[in-house]
């Protein structure tokens, strides 16, 4: 039963995650807190793994989330779920690709949906930054907020971010560097 529920949840995610694998993040966030499957830092771990392992990020995210909920078969149902809707869509439009590319309605609706997806991902990343850069145990009160700011983490974030913008290395390299950093510095 849980496998079927997972399949359906991820079918919906596959249908609405427009613009690539990153768009699955806010939907998995929502699934996480509405069903109580996983919390913000677990989702952040999931993304870290999904980004550093081979394979498309969307399918990796689905597999990991499915595994967390129901083990290997959970991973299978979530991955199958997330690929079903795209498969059906492609099967339907494959015969008339050119017509679809030049369809004005599709292009306009898609433009609005992408703006929406940008906001959804931003909100999820904002939450993730909160858990990554603040000490959650002392952010309960407003007075504690100043003490909660983890300076080391913020400096690390800024350094990594500028390195990404400047050097444009492969994401895997930053993941490795961060993992090394985590061995020696306590964040």
């Amino acid at each position: 039963m849980i496998l079927l529920a997972l399949y359906l949840d991820f079918f919906k995610i596959g249908l609405f995650a427009l613009g690539g694998g990153l768009a699955t993040i806010p939907f998995i966030y929502e699934l996480g807190y509405s069903a109580g499957f996983f919390n913000a830092s677990e989702i952040a771990n999931m993304i870290a793994v999904a980004q550093s392992m081979p394979g498309p990020i969307g399918i990796n995210m689905a597999s990991y989330a499915g595994f967390k909920v129901a083990g290997f078969w959970g991973a299978v149902s979530a991955a199958l779920g997330v690929i079903t809707a795209p498969m059906i869509t492609i099967a339907i439009i494959a015969k008339a690709l050119q017509k679809f590319i030049h369809n004005k309605y599709a292009a306009v609706a898609f433009g609005g949906a992408i703006a929406c997806v940008c906001a959804l991902i931003s909100a999820a990343v904002f939450d993730m930054l909160k858990t990554a850069l603040l000490r959650p145990e002392i952010t309960q009160t407003l007075e504690g907020l100043v003490d909660a700011i983890a300076m080391k983490n913020i400096i690390f974030f800024i350094v990594i971010f500028f390195a990404i913008r400047k050097f444009k290395w492969h994401p895997f390299i930053y993941i490795c560097l961060a993992a090394c950093g985590g061995c020696f510095v306590k964040f």
Binding site: A44, Y174, A178
Partner: peptide, 9 residues
Amino acid sequence: ALRIAVAAL
């Protein structure tokens, strides 16, 4: 540490 890097990525 990975969570910080992933947020940046």
